[in-house]
Design a binder for these strands. Structure first.
Lengths: 342, 342
DNA sequence: GCCCCTCGTCGAAGCGCTTCGATAAGACTG
DNA sequence: CAGTCTTATCGAAGCGCTTCGACGAGGGGC
């Protein structure tokens, strides 16, 4: 008897070939479209495939074609990201990958560099998507060394030679200042991330602040920016200090999801509040926001995957892609601020 | 010239064999441990592996061994779960799977049954882990039909023939009643999930209520249970009605994360509040909780994976596994209520 | 000292798929 | 109508790994 008699439930390409009365290679070409196949033959083969419920064996395919049709998605250990946003991102990634006929392998960063090396060397994935990258991210040097196609969501300190996607925080900060200026405010302030985030060099915090201050200067409105802790007490303290320093402030930008509610509660009712935050946080904020700049999580995911797919196909892609922030106004209207390239 | 000259970066098993001066099969046996290999040979082979940086080609291995060493993790479309809990769960799953030398393929439920079938038929994964299962979950019949090893986190209406893991909500409800009784309360109440959840037949809500009421009866304390909406208004309304109906209530159990804060705020200070909720919600609740019964997310993930691994090894596993709730007391001490089998 | 084991190793046969010639059978030339 | 192209299909050679059977070399038992 043969080694282990083929498992009952496995339909192979040669079953299909026999059933359709053609050669194995013909079936393969029907599936891949890499050679011309006559319409009649194609029909017959496709019919057999449907009838037998054939699905190609992923391993065999990967072995022969040197393409696994799987990408890895690396989650950070401790995410700096708001979880609902992360989930949206993940969902968008998986969905988009599937549309490009790829599956997604999930890795947490805690396997470290060795994990990335293993995944790459075992030819298990064709490319890597790294989520929530920070300025000095330990995963970045490994990616460089690996030399596999990869795309980062977020920017490390030095993105040279990599492919990165992120919200354009500079633009987001500017939009907030512009919005407040348009409403007639002349003294505005930014309450940002906790001090530790600025110290940790987490790019986005700095970029937001710079965008905010630059725009304010350009628009000739008085603006200050300060960090803000995440706890209710920190939030209250930051607000108090802000009002002490400049009692004339009438518009505040909050770039700190965790503290948003407490900040908004501590501010006088007359002050307009604009936040940079995820959709869900914005709509459910109380007291209600004047406006918000939303994080385009889905688009981030989609863009990241399509960039990776292009890299897998050997096409050139821009090193950095910045997505325009979406604006949201208290009423509920939603306006797009479209993509900027690079 | 050969078809496509081997890619420079790929080290194969025969490279290792040559380098170590043994046969390919010997290397394989060193790696798998399926046949005895002399210590000296093993050393030599392992040394070569390290030196060359060899990692077996996942596809080739899957093809030859009929084992992909990958499991699929299916996320629900719209999760009934608290996101931080989901993340803990996911992390635990990935980590545990890696310890058992498996990787995790991420699927969202939106590919539907076809996705599961594809994944199974393509031999891409050896087993399936389904998260956050609900009473009448569309994914359950597919799993039955598929006949691949699978483990569910959460219980469907009819778990016959499946393998399910979940928190023991009945016990959790009982623990809450017991705790309040021990503190001397004689009139207690449960505020549960929104009415719609009870109607949707989502198992856990009913089980908690039953556990709570049973224990109260056993302990001879007066107890009532009622659903509670998630909005601040619903929460306030539920509390008002509760106090109207039974002004003598001194202890309340809350099994509703979303409404917890509003319920606690609306209750008189003198009332003790116990919650069934994730760790993070418990410690950050304000006003502070008297105690909490925590959802053992990590253990849930670990158990689910190890059950799946046992199934993959052909070992028998119990149909249902209920994990004992962890108790947490206001002070910060944390006590384990260990696993119950089945 | 002969036979039978066990132990450690090797060679070869696939696993299911892709891909590269090769090859008939027409479709055009001139 | 001989010669040259296409076009559609086939056969076979791997892809890198696991696993089965074979086999030589020692180690008892009697």
């Amino acid at each position: 008897m043969p080694p282990q008699g083929k498992r009952a439930d496995m339909v192979t390409i040669s079953d299909v070939a026999r059933h359709a009365g053609v050669a194995v290679s013909t079936v393969s070409y029907v599936l891949s479209g890499k050679r011309a196949i006559s319409a009649t033959t194609r029909q017959r083969v496709l019919a057999s495939i449907g009838e037998l419920g054939y699905h190609p064996h992923a391993g065999a395919r990967a072995l022969a074609s040197r393409r696994a049709n799987v990408i890895a998605m690396v989650l950070p250990l401790r995410t700096g990201m708001h979880l609902p946003v992360l989930m949206q991102l993940v969902t968008a990634v998986v969905t988009t990958a599937r549309q490009a006929d790829h599956d997604v392998l999930l890795m947490t960063a805690d396997e470290g560099p060795a994990g990335l090396r293993r995944i790459a060397a075992s030819a298990m994935v064709d490319g890597v998507l790294v989520m929530d990258v920070e300025m000095s991210d330990a995963r970045v040097p490994v990616l460089r060394e690996l030399g596999r196609p990869s795309v980062l969501i977020g920017f490390p300190a030095d993105p040279t030679g990599l492919t990165c996607v992120d919200l354009d925080f500079h633009l987001a900060g500017a939009r907030c200042a512009e919005h407040l200026a348009q409403l007639g405010h002349t003294r505005i302030a930014l309450l940002g991330a906790p001090p530790v985030v600025y110290q940790r060099d987490t790019g986005f915090a700095h970029r937001t602040r710079a965008g905010f201050l630059d725009a304010a200067r350009r628009l000739r409105v008085a603006a200050t920016a300060r960090p803000c802790g995440e706890s209710p007490d920190d939030a209250r303290a930051a607000v108090k200090q802000l009002l002490d320093d400049d009692p004339g402030v009438t518009g505040v930008v909050v770039h700190n999801e965790a503290a948003l509610a407490h900040i908004a509660a501590a501010l006088p009712d007359a002050v307009s509040v604009v936040a940079i935050c995820p959709d869900q946080v914005a709509v459910s904020a109380w007291p209600p926001l004047t406006a918000a700049v939303l994080i385009p999580a889905e688009e981030l995911g989609r863009q990241a995957v399509s960039l990776l797919m292009r890299k897998l196909d050997g096409q050139p892609v821009p090193e950095s892609t910045l997505l325009g922030p979406k604006a949201w106004f208290g009423a509920g209207a939603s306006v797009d601020g479209r993509v900027t390239g690079s």
